[in-house]
């Protein structure tokens, strides 16, 4: 019964967007920066508890490690203890490279949860939170500048030399399809299509300004854009076939 109650609580937490209850100081940080996270555990099994311990892990999508404070689930050490930061709020300060014993190049993101010392209570996972990269890693799709706002000029680049998917390797890109979102709500009903330009040997780009390409409802804002490159390949009969790349999500930064 307790297990069912716990699962139900987790489900409610996910639906109500409890993930948004995590803040960071500073707001952006590299794996070498000291950062303080603060989490609001209201609505989780950790609500109302007098102490909380962190359970932290790196690279959520693979290649991750436990933080050095993850020694025993049923007996968290003193250095995993979180600091009270208000009613149902707990904070914890750490540096990525020290916490995970990984290099800045290895560390992409991390996740964590808050738990009781004996592990009988816990919050859902809060993840993933990205580290600002300290080393440049070439990627198939790259936005320039890397951090942009809704009013900025954004150039999205497609480097076919780095592609690992056959259509992305073979295609001759012609257009890009872009959709804009405010949170999880799409702005407008159709994607904006723009022409792409050739910028080098098998490299392509398209440039746009989100607020120029999309009509943002009064009081709304664009928090992310999703894009895919479209193009043609020759089919087995010699006929031209339309194909698209995978979709890439670009989170926008609130600027001033």
């Amino acid at each position: 019964m307790k297990k069912i109650l716990f699962l139900f609580t987790l489900l409610i937490a996910a639906v109500t967007g409890i993930h948004a209850q995590v803040t960071f100081s500073p707001a952006t940080f590299t794996a070498q920066d000291q950062v303080t996270l603060t989490v609001d555990v209201t609505g989780t099994p950790m609500a109302g508890q007098s102490e909380a311990y962190i359970w932290i892990f790196s690279n959520v999508s693979g290649g991750g490690k436990d933080g050095f404070t993850n020694t025993s689930w049923t007996n968290s050490p003193a250095n995993a203890k979180m600091t009270a930061a208000g009613t149902n709020k707990w904070s914890f300060t750490f540096t990525g490279t020290t916490m995970f014993s990984q290099t800045p190049g290895e560390l992409k993101d991390f996740g964590f949860l808050a738990k009781s010392k004996d592990g009988s209570r816990q919050t859902p996972d809060y993840k993933p939170f990205k580290f600002d990269p300290l080393v440049f890693t070439p990627t198939v799709f790259r936005a320039f500048p890397a951090k942009v706002g809704q009013d900025d000029v954004i150039t999205v680049n497609f480097d076919q030399n780095l592609a690992t998917e056959l259509n992305e390797q073979r295609m001759t890109p012609t257009t890009i399809s872009i959709t804009a979102f405010n949170g999880s709500t799409q702005i407008g009903t159709t994607a904006v299509t723009l022409n792409v330009r050739n910028t080098g040997s098998k490299t392509w780009a398209a440039t746009f300004i989100p607020t120029r390409s999309f009509t943002v409802p009064m009081g709304g804002k664009i928090t992310s854009v999703r894009y895919r490159f479209n193009g043609t390949v020759l089919g087995t009969t010699g006929a031209t076939t339309q194909v698209s790349s995978g979709e890439t999500v670009l989170d926008l930064t609130e600027m001033k």
Binding site: A27, D152, T253, E254, M255, K256
Partner: peptide, 12 residues
């Protein structure tokens, strides 16, 4: 200059 609204960091 374009700065992050969250921490005033110069970005663009």
């Amino acid at each position: 200059e374009r700065r992050s609204a969250a921490d005033d960091k110069l970005l663009i």
